[in-house]
Every structure is written in C-alpha cells, then in structure tokens.
Nucleic acid binder design. Structure first.
Lengths: 206, 206
DNA sequence: TTAAGAATTGACTAAGGTGGTCAAATGTAA
DNA sequence: TTACATTTGACCACCTTAGTCAATTCTTAA
C-alpha cells in the first residue's frame, strides 16, 4: 500500500474502502472485480493501482483494516468490569453498530475472512475469534444462569440470536437506500436480549 | 430442459444437480461457471447443454427442483397433528437432514433464492417461506410458552438457533471429506432444542 | 450383423472481462 | 516558472465465458 492512501481526505478513503469491502464480500477474492470497485467508488483504474500494488495488496490491506478497526473500537470501549453477560453483549452490539454505520460491509468482509480457507487469512482472524470469545466469557458471572441449562449451549444461542438478527436486518435493508434507523434497531435488539435474559437467568436475577 | 435428463440413472443425475447446486450457491448466477460444473460432475460440456438449453434454463430447473424437493419431503412427512412446537421442529430438522444427505447444497441454493432480488425467483420462493411459517405456527399450542416472553421473538430465536447450528456444522465439515455422522448431529440438535424448551416453556410443561 | 437413433464427447469460437500499465494531464505549492 | 504529487483512462495481453457442432460411442431392436 502506498502511504499516499492514508493521507487523502477521509470521505474518499472510506468510500474506496467501503466499495472494496462490498465487492469482496459479495464475490470473494477471485471473482471480485477491481473494475467494479473503481466504478463504484468513482475513481480511475490507475488511481486504485497507484494506492495499491495489486489486487492482493488491496485485499490484505482490507483484512488488516477490518480486524484492527473492529478490535480497537470494541476492545477499548467495552467496560470489561461488567459481569452481566447481557449488559456485556448490549455494549458489544452497540459498538458493532457504530462501526457498521461508518463501514456497512465490514462485518460481511469479516465473515468472509472467517469462512476463508486460506492459511494467512486464518492467522489474522485469530484475533477476531479471541475477541468474540472474550466478549462472552471474560469476567462474566455465570452463576446467574439456570442450572438446568447447559452453559455453552445457552451462550451459543445468545450469540446466534444476535448474529442472525444482524443478518436479517441487513438483508431487510439491502437494496433500499432509505437510511437506517440504528436507534430503532438497537431498541429491538435490546428487547431480544430481554427475552434471552428471561429464558436463561434464574428467577432471582430478573 | 431436455426430458432425456429425467431418464438417466439417478446417480449421475444427482451428481450433476449437486455440482450445479454447489457452483451456483458459491458464486451466484452470474459468476457461476458451467465449465466448473461439468468438470466437477465429470461430464462433457456438450452433454450439459444437451440436457439444458442454456445456463438460465439450468438455473430455473434447479430452482424448481430445490423448492419441490424440500416441499414434498417436509410437507408430506411431517405429522401436522403434533401441537408441541419442539416436537414439530425436531421433525422438520430430521427431514431437512435427510434431504441434505442426498443433496448437500440444496439449502445453500435455497438461501440464494431467498436472498435473491430477481422477481421471478422471489415468486417461486414464496412457497418455501409459507412452509417455514407453517412449520412454526400450524396447529401449534402456544399456551405452553411462558407469558412473560414475547411469542414472536421466542419463535425467531428458535428458528435462528436451528439455522445457525446448521450453518456452523456445515462450515465445520467444509473441505473435509470424512463422511458426516448425521445421527450425532441430530442428537446434538435435539439437546439444543431441550435447552430452548427449558428456556421458553412454563414450568409445568417441562 | 446391421442399422438407426440416442447419448456423449471435446475442440472450437466469438465475445467480453480480467488485472495491471503508462504516457499524458491536472493539481499543488513554493 | 518549476518541480513534484495526483489522477486519468485508453490500452494490452491474457483468460474465461456460454454455447456449438461434427464426430464418436453406446444402445437397442430387427
């Protein structure tokens, strides 16, 4: 990556990053088209290859950018003293949403990294997996859970619910360019979290 | 579609269908390659276009095949007299698994249809959506649910849990050609269902 | 054994898309 | 005016694509 790319104005830089995220998450590496990216981002072909040596260089930059952006925003802003898992995930969801507002396709791209089979990508992605596991375990008070339910399974269900809610909302807004009401989404997610709380916590913690 | 295709031996027919399901669900319509399909299915280019007029014809055949196969297997085999939602979904999962054994990528392809924006595809897919909604509502006794939880949300969580479990297992086995132990999977799914039962049912129904 | 027809092959094509280059043009700042 | 950084888009060699078709092999029945 040419360091010139880091110096251009933010709007343009984000636009390029977002278009690239979009194209790669839609078509994976091989079938993603740099032609589409430059058309979508409204820059010339030459400029993209002035910023990045080649397609792979661009992809690697995006990979690092994706992981670092998510890691920094979440790791540094979450209150790790919170011991209630539902308050914890509420926070995580909130920060994810903030990231999504600025980089709408960053988590799609992250999922691509996640599912990828390429060795060097997997390595980078270990950090994201660690973060995810830390969110659901670090400093969490598990004694609040009903004893009859298997903890690991309950936690998976919580994680899956949030992931699927995210995916389905994201699908719902696909194609429509009406801007997304993130506050309303957040409120609905929180109400799902309340359902999960009732589902999994002992009576005295409700 | 050339009717000759319906007459060839089942093994070959299923092989072609499965390779096509795989390619299309991986790359969507535009970027899917008929060259890859014939290579993977071990047939000649000419033969594929002897069976199907063109790529679109193949895709449409697959769409109908996908919808019909799922509909027939599930609609006709589920015991619609069952009123317990968890017994209902256990059955649905079982039949889905039976379909997956024979057509490993059929639900990936179905998801592609689901997420597609093309009008004529959406039409066909209405049937699948209706089935899904019927599974989770027809003849179901909702009085067993805790009154504090919002029914619609609880049902979404159940559905999402099963879907995500499916996706994650399917990812786990991707690349590995060791044959899948469907009985073990089914057992684990059932244990997730038991967790959900504890989570959402009133005490007297456990 | 033969003949007719069905099934199957794979080399071939024209069209279009690919990642990447580069000389020229433009912008910027001193 | 100069020097340098940015930006453009026409251009290229290469590759893949969907689809064709004459030739071959297989099947069946007389």
């Amino acid at each position: 990556m040419n360091e010139a790319f880091e110096k251009i104005d933010m709007e343009k830089r984000d636009r390029i990053i977002n278009c690239a995220f979009k194209e790669f998450s839609k078509y994976k590496f091989d079938k993603a088209s740099t032609n589409n990216i430059v058309k979508d981002a409204n820059i010339s072909k030459g400029l993209l290859f002035y910023y990045f040596n080649n397609k792979e260089d661009l992809f690697k930059y995006l990979s690092e950018f994706c992981v670092n952006t998510i890691l920094e925003e979440i790791k540094n802003n979450i209150d790790w003293n919170i011991t209630d898992i539902f308050e914890r995930v509420k926070q995580a969801v909130f920060f994810k949403m903030k990231i999504t507002e600025r980089y709408p396709y960053i988590f799609h791209f992250g999922k691509l990294l996640f599912d990828s089979e390429s060795k060097d990508v997997i390595f980078k992605n270990k950090d994201l997996m660690e973060l995810s596991s830390k969110i659901y375990s670090y400093n969490i008070d598990f004694t609040k859970f009903k004893e009859e339910v298997e903890l690991k399974k309950a936690i998976n269900i919580i994680r899956w619910t949030l992931e699927k809610y995210g995916e389905e909302s994201s699908n719902r807004f696909k194609g429509i360019d009406k801007e997304i009401d993130y506050d309303a989404l957040l409120e609905e997610i929180n109400s799902y979290i309340e359902v999960l709380r009732i589902a999994f916590y002992k009576g005295e913690y409700l």
